[in-house]
Simulated scan of single mutants.
Amino acid sequence: MLTGKLVRLRALEPSDAESLYRWNSDPDVGRWMVNGHPLSLAQIRKRCEERKENSYEHVLLGIEALDEGKLIGVIDLEGAEPEVGNAELTIYLGEKSHWGKGYGTEAMRLMCAYGFNVMRLHLIALWVVAENESARRVYRKVGFQEDGRHREAFRGEDGKRYDMILMSLLNGELT
């Protein structure tokens, strides 16, 4: 487990399915996420139970608030290949009561430090919707820089198209 002052990153458990289902059903939480078709609680439980072990190629961890011992989000590094040393990061906080209080920033720092120090990555990249300024602010605070723009690559639930921003962080740039 990776522990900071606010959060602990830990493996997901089948008992986390109820939180994941609730978050995936909340339009505020999913506003800027690429979501597939809706899943039932039973389907999410099954995915949690049958999920593969974390590996170099895919590390998926729950974000737990230390003060409550409660799951508040999910973070993962995926697509890592030892020959290349790059991975893609995704994160979301599902508990809206924890937004804007530093939990996401600390989770990002912990996961990026793990990627660089333990996995020996050279580059961690992520995609973010251009209009999601609160997320972009967190990413910049951690040290990510904007690399490029994928025009109208995200379709919001309102049907409107939004640009996606590619951001990256190199080993040694984590702040």
Rank of each mutant, 00 (worst) to 15 (best):
T3E: 15
T3S: 15
T3K: 15
G4T: 03
G4A: 08
L6T: 00
V7M: 07
L9P: 12
R10D: 09
L12E: 12
E13M: 14
P14C: 07
S15A: 15
A17S: 13
E18P: 04
L20S: 06
Y21D: 11
W23D: 09
W23P: 07
D26I: 10
G30A: 12
G30K: 11
R31D: 09
R31A: 11
M33K: 10
M33P: 09
N35A: 13
G36I: 05
G36C: 10
S40H: 05
S40P: 04
Q43K: 09
R45E: 15
E49N: 10
E49R: 14
E50R: 14
K52H: 10
Y56T: 02
E57R: 11
H58N: 15
L60G: 08
G62R: 02
I63D: 12
K70G: 03
I72F: 02
G73C: 04
L77C: 10
G79V: 02
G79K: 06
A80Q: 04
A80D: 05
E83N: 07
I91G: 09
L93D: 06
L93S: 02
G94A: 06
G94P: 04
G94R: 05
G94W: 06
K96D: 04
S97N: 13
H98T: 11
W99L: 06
G100W: 11
G104N: 10
T105P: 00
T105M: 01
E106I: 01
A107K: 02
A107H: 03
M108F: 06
M108Q: 00
R109C: 07
L110P: 06
M111T: 09
A113W: 04
F116E: 05
L121V: 00
H122C: 00
H122V: 00
L123W: 01
I124P: 03
A125N: 14
L126Q: 04
L126H: 05
V128C: 12
V128E: 08
A130H: 14
E131R: 13
E131C: 08
E133V: 13
E133K: 12
S134Q: 12
S134K: 15
R136D: 11
V138F: 02
Y139R: 07
Y139N: 06
Y139S: 04
F144Q: 04
D147T: 03
D147Y: 08
R151P: 09
E152W: 11
E152Y: 11
A153R: 14
A153L: 11
F154H: 14
R155A: 13
K160I: 09
K160E: 13
Y162F: 15
D163E: 13
I165Q: 09
L166P: 00
S168I: 00
S168F: 01
S168H: 06
S168Q: 01
L170M: 05
N171R: 06
N171P: 00
G172A: 00
L174D: 01
